[in-house]
C-alpha cells in the first residue's frame, strides 16, 4: 500500500494549528524517523497517518497496490495500553480483530512472544509486567499482525536504557522482516541508531527531510541546526 502521500495536510483543534500544510511522500524501505522538539506535532502527524485523527485540510493517500484502505498498518504508543488479560491473550486479541483464524492466532502469538523474549511470561497478566516488558508486548502485538507499515510513537520515552536497547533491537528485527518503520522520537541518539532518513518537524511544519548522516553533519535548516546543538550534549 506504500507509498504514503500527504498532500498539503493540516490539522487544527480548538483554533490551534498543530500540523501546518505538510506535504511529503514516504516510500517503502528506509526507516523514517520523525524528529523534533516537544510540541512540534510528531505524535499528531503519526496519528493522522495512522488514521486515528482526521485531517482538517489536505489529503492522506496510500498510493500503493493492495490494501488501499491502509488496513495493513499498526501502531505502538508511547504508553502501551494493555488489556486486563494475559500477555498471550493481548496478542491474540489483536489477531482476532484482524480476522485471523482461531487456530492460527495462538500459534502466531506464541511465535511472536518468543521473538520478543516474553515466552516465559506469556501466561502472566499483561498489566503486572514491567514497563519494558509491556512495551515489548506492545511491539509483539503489532508485529503479530505482520503489518506493511509500523508506526512507533516515542516507543522508548518512558523506558530505562536496558529496556530501550531491547526495544530498539526488536524494531530492527521487525524492519528486517520487511516492515516499513515510521517512528517519532526527540532522542537524537535513537534517531541516529534507528533512522535511515529524518523528517524534521518544528511548530507543525515539515522543515527538513534528509538522509540521517547528512542531517546530523549538515542540517539544511537553521531550526534543525539549533535543535541538534541544544540536544547533543545530553545524548
Amino acid at each position: 500500500m506504500l507509498p504514503l502521500e500527504l498532500r498539503d495536510v493540516s490539522f487544527a483543534i480548538n483554533g490551534r494549528t498543530l500540523i501546518d500544510h505538510v506535504s511529503v511522500e514516504i516510500g517503502a524501505g528506509p526507516r523514517t524517523v520523525i524528529l523534533g522538539p516537544n510540541g512540534a506535532g510528531k505524535s499528531v502527524l503519526m496519528r493522522l497517518c495512522h488514521g486515528l485523527l482526521p485531517a482538517s485540510a489536505g489529503r492522506i493517500i496510500w498510493r500503493g497496490a493492495g490494501s488501499a484502505d491502509g488496513s495493513r498498518q499498526a501502531m505502538v504508543f508511547q504508553r502501551p495500553v494493555m488489556l486486563r488479560r494475559s500477555a498471550l491473550a493481548n496478542v491474540v486479541y489483536g489477531l482476532k480483530l484482524a480476522g485471523v483464524s482461531r487456530a492460527e492466532r495462538e500459534l502466531r502469538a506464541a511465535d511472536v512472544l518468543d521473538a520478543v523474549d516474553l515466552s516465559a511470561v506469556s501466561g502472566r497478566p499483561a498489566r503486572v509486567l514491567s514497563g519494558g516488558e509491556q512495551q515489548r508486548l506492545a511491539l509483539a502485538r503489532a508485529w503479530a499482525l505482520n503489518p506493511e507499515v509500523l508506526f512507533l510513537d516515542e516507543p522508548t520515552a518512558n523506558l530505562d536504557p536496558n529496556a530501550t536497547r531491547d526495544v530498539e533491537s526488536i524494531i530492527n528485527q521487525i524492519c528486517a522482516g520487511g516492515t516499513k518503520i515510521i517512528m517519532s522520537t526527540h532522542n537524537l541518539g535513537q534517531a541516529r541508531r534507528l533512522g535511515d532518513e529524518i523528517l524534521f518537524l518544528s511548530h507543525g511544519r515539515l522543515v527538513e527531510r534528509s538522509p540521517v548522516e547528512q542531517f546530523f553533519k549538515q542540517p539544511a535548516s537553521a531550526e534543525a541546526a539549533a535543535f541538534i546543538r541544544a540536544e547533543l550534549p545530553w545524548n
Partner: peptide, 15 residues
C-alpha cells in the same frame, strides 16, 4: 484510556 489503542487494532465500537 483505551480508545486509540483499540481503534489502532481495528476494533469497531461494538468490539
Amino acid at each position: 484510556e483505551y480508545e486509540e489503542q483499540l481503534r489502532s487494532l481495528g476494533a469497531k465500537r461494538l468490539n
